[in-house]
Amino acid sequence: MDEKDKKDLYKEFGIDNPDEFFEGENDREAIRQEILGRIQATKEIHNQQRSKPGLKRNLSMAAAIGLILLSAALMLYYQNSGPQSNYITVVVPKGETREVVLPDGSTVWLNAASTLKYPKKFGKKRTVYLLDGEGFFDVIHDEHVPFVVDASGIKTNVLGTSFVVKSYKKLSTMSVSVVTGKVAVSDDRKQLSVLVKDQEVVYHKDHRKPNVVKVKAQEKTAWNSGKVILNAANFEDVILAVENAFQVKIDYDIEKFKNCSTTINFDTRKSLTDAMETLKDIQGITYQIKEKEVLIVGNGCN
């Protein structure tokens, strides 16, 4: 089949540009649903035609078979030649952490509810993508090949050092904390910050203005050993940490608690009740646990 015939076939099934159809980082599930939807629609047409003899039924059957074959071909095309084929994606569920060894031997510890994408083989740059979550990166030094973590449009550039990037989609901020060495942080337009050991930069996702603070960066990796240490953290950070550690959903009045700054330590190897009791003592909340849901009430910090 030549290219013209292929394009005509794509258009017959509503696909004007197959390259655009497969475009994007996270489209695999969307494509699967699109294909299933088109197959189902064609089956419904076929079912409506079943009682009609002759040409219409034959055409309906042919269309159904053609669509299924096309769908299979499209999925094969996506898997074998799409943008995902040269990448590995690691998804860590709630309640777990995971170590990932990258192609250059660098390691990443991913916190609960995190997603990392990285190439099967590095090129002139060692670029990885923290699509969601938090990771502790321990990067092997290579002065000729920079290492870049891309998260929420913010890029952390290093030659070899260790640092934490926190960029959960549910949070209004993202941060970079340096455990050893030095890192440069930038967006698509300019360099935003240069950090050294025990410095952290926090960006609000709305305005991207950097706020650099002094921290004990090693504490930022405590979740890797089952402990959560949060100092002067937004209440939303605390809630997400509890949700991810204990695999629960927490309901609370966001407006009431949005101005709360909380310092808390808890052990993820202990019970949810232990963590909630600690939060109760610190923040003055009351709570109710019902299976995998927690309801928090209180006066907040307005």
Rank of each mutant, 00 (worst) to 15 (best):
M1Q: 07
D2N: 15
D2S: 05
K4S: 10
K7A: 12
L9Y: 12
K11N: 11
E12W: 02
F13S: 00
F13H: 04
N17Y: 08
F21H: 06
G24H: 06
G24P: 08
E25Q: 10
N26R: 12
R28K: 08
E29A: 13
A30Q: 12
R32Q: 10
R32A: 04
I35E: 03
T42P: 01
R50C: 01
P53R: 12
K56W: 08
R57S: 06
S60V: 02
M61I: 14
A62I: 01
I65L: 11
I68S: 09
I68T: 12
L69G: 12
A73I: 00
Y77F: 11
Y78Q: 11
N80R: 07
S81R: 08
V90A: 05
V91C: 10
V91N: 15
V92S: 04
K94L: 02
E96T: 04
V101T: 15
L102V: 03
P103I: 10
G105T: 14
G105E: 13
S106K: 11
V108I: 12
V108F: 00
N111T: 09
P119Y: 08
K120S: 08
K121I: 15
T127D: 08
V128I: 15
Y129S: 00
Y129D: 03
Y129T: 01
D132R: 03
F137A: 09
I140A: 04
D142F: 02
E143K: 15
H144W: 02
F147S: 07
F147M: 05
V148I: 15
V149Q: 09
V149N: 08
D150L: 12
D150S: 14
D150C: 03
A151F: 04
G153P: 08
G153W: 08
T156R: 15
T156I: 07
V165T: 12
K170Q: 13
V176W: 01
V178Y: 00
G181M: 06
K182R: 14
A184E: 14
S186V: 10
D188L: 06
R189L: 10
K190T: 11
K190G: 02
V194K: 06
V196Y: 00
E200W: 01
V201R: 03
V201C: 07
R208P: 00
V212A: 01
K214Y: 05
A217G: 09
Q218D: 11
K220R: 10
W223H: 03
K227M: 14
V228H: 03
I229Q: 07
I229F: 06
L230K: 06
A232F: 09
A233F: 08
A233Y: 06
N234K: 09
V238C: 03
L240Y: 11
L240P: 02
A241Y: 06
F246T: 11
K249Q: 12
I250N: 06
I254V: 15
F257N: 02
F257P: 01
C260Q: 07
C260E: 04
C260S: 06
S261N: 10
T262D: 05
T263N: 03
F266D: 08
F266G: 01
T268M: 13
R269E: 13
K270Q: 14
K270I: 04
S271V: 03
L272Q: 05
D274M: 04
M276P: 04
L279Y: 09
K280N: 09
Q283M: 10
Q283I: 01
T286Y: 08
Y287T: 10
Q288L: 13
L295H: 04
I296D: 00
V297E: 09
G298M: 13
G298R: 13
G298A: 08
